[in-house]
Measured scan of single mutants.
Amino acid sequence: MQRVNMIMAESPGLITICLLGYLLSAECTVFLDHENANKILNRPKRYNSGKLEEFVQGNLERECMEEKCSFEEAREVFENTERTTEFWKQYVDGDQCESNPCLNGGSCKDDINSYECWCPFGFEGKNCELDVTCNIKNGRCEQFCKNSADNKVVCSCTEGYRLAENQKSCEPAVPFPCGRVSVSQTSKLTRAETVFPDVDYVNSTEAETILDNITQSTQSFNDFTRVVGGEDAKPGQFPWQVVLNGKVDAFCGGSIVNEKWIVTAAHCVETGVKITVVAGEHNIEETEHTEQKRNVIRIIPHHNYNAAINKYNHDIALLELDEPLVLNSYVTPICIADKEYTNIFLKFGSGYVSGWGRVFHKGRSALVLQYLRVPLVDRATCLRSTKFTIYNNMFCAGFHEGGRDSCQGDSGGPHVTEVEGTSFLTGIISWGEECAMKGKYGIYTKVSRYVNWIKEKTKLT
């Protein structure tokens, strides 16, 4: 034993070699072989497995989906700052455009905790909710729209109204504003409101030439003092309507412009014939205590009207009353817009006519005020429907199939267009061939041609 100890002390290297040989010859039971080890760690190889990531292109799944990435790591994937920024906006807080917040056709661009709407022409605001041009839906104005110097929408209202708090709607500024039905039992019968379409306001006024200088022999019209197929109006439903009495009662109609003036057809009036105007009328054979009678003290036909040349060209006249009318729910003026808007309103496509005229061709006159909704007829169809001249200051309205029309005794009465609950004068009943005849239409004086003249002559002093 002493000898062994001496050998170990003198030859430590020998001992180490012996131990190493023993270990190498022993069977290893701690580690699995290569094949079995792979069965336990069965993990798919990654895209760049075996390579240094710093030297390969980034992978979106590896960089940002398996674990949260930084902007720089995302930049490695896209290799483009702009594309990385677009991805980053949604990656950080989701897609803010998912709810489609942009209105009126706006395009949404996502941002971090926010979004941006790219608005089409005519709109602005956070969600493109603000109209900035009158060309689109009248700028959301209830009545009139004008573009300011910086191309912003400025709404306005006709006389007797003021802008509401929203700067879009119009509200009454006087007790009985024009064009409004205020009798409670008839307010439910107000005709369907007309909503502004998209309009090209630059070209809204037709490029028409008034044929002022045409000389033409007097034409022989049949029954051209021209509501057939209409309905009984309720008291106060058309408070701007008046009836004219002269040699015979209810020979023509008219509309209240203001307390002192009536507008009617020029062919209705004769110099030297006494005319009485009755406002607030409903049943011409009954006294309903809503009527107001006034005498006409002055007749002003349009300066281009000449019955000797043509009885229905420039067929418009103004009547001055001896005493002002007292405005109330049964006696209310009709609204008159400017030339541009009167023309736009007419193009809405349908209007209402009213009167006490004959209820059928050569038949009896109506006792109760009649009204009828009539569609506008395109000019080409209008011209083809008659052998008589249709001037540019006239328009056609009615039904091709016949059966409904204005008729004798309705002449001078109103053709009105309702705009968001307020009625505007767009025409004056003038003439036609018979009444409600198939293929024939009622012919009306186009008020847009005469609004400046009306307003100039009827100013209240």
Rank of each mutant, 00 (worst) to 15 (best):
I336E: 00
V202Q: 09
T381E: 09
I429S: 14
N328C: 03
R358P: 10
E67Y: 08
R373C: 04
R294T: 01
V419F: 12
L425G: 00
V416S: 05
G280P: 02
C134S: 03
V273F: 08
A192Q: 08
Y91E: 15
V296G: 01
T84Q: 08
P333R: 03
Y441D: 00
I40G: 15
V419M: 10
F251W: 07
T461I: 08
Y91H: 15
E66T: 07
F345T: 01
T215Y: 07
G122H: 05
S220P: 12
D200R: 11
P177N: 01
T186L: 08
D338K: 06
N36M: 10
N80W: 03
G402Y: 15
E231T: 08
D33L: 09
A233W: 07
G105K: 08
N127P: 02
W431G: 10
C134R: 03
T84I: 04
I275Q: 03
R364W: 05
S365D: 12
D110R: 15
T186Y: 09
V92F: 08
K339E: 10
Y91F: 06
I17V: 07
N393W: 06
T290H: 10
Y312W: 12
N310D: 10
E193C: 05
I284L: 11
T264K: 00
E434Q: 09
V447Q: 00
G280M: 02
L32E: 14
L460M: 12
E231C: 09
P175R: 11
A279D: 01
H415W: 03
V242T: 03
I275P: 05
W88K: 09
S365L: 06
D212C: 07
A26F: 05
Y341I: 12
K126M: 07
V419W: 13
G236F: 04
E35F: 08
A207E: 12
D95R: 14
V277E: 01
S114R: 11
E159Y: 09
E285W: 10
T422E: 01
I297Y: 04
M394R: 03
E288P: 06
S184L: 13
A173M: 12
P172D: 04
I443N: 00
Q241R: 06
T158Q: 11
A192M: 10
V202G: 13
V377R: 05
E72A: 15
L189Y: 12
R298C: 02
I299E: 03
T29F: 12
L163R: 04
H314A: 07
E270N: 04
V451L: 04
T29G: 06
P172Y: 05
S187E: 08
T84R: 08
D111V: 15
I262G: 00
G432K: 11
S49M: 10
W261A: 02
V296C: 02
C97E: 02
W240P: 01
T287I: 13
P172C: 03
S350K: 10
W431A: 06
V195A: 12
L103D: 12
E124F: 13
L346G: 02
V227G: 10
G179V: 00
T218W: 09
P101D: 03
G355F: 15
D405W: 08
H34F: 07
N80R: 07
D232S: 11
I112D: 14
C145L: 01
N203H: 08
Y371S: 09
G439C: 05
F388H: 14
F395T: 02
I136S: 15
C435M: 03
N166C: 02
V242W: 01
D249F: 01
L60D: 12
V419Q: 05
N42Q: 14
E285L: 11
K126D: 12
K188H: 08
C178N: 00
T389H: 08
L211D: 11
Q216D: 09
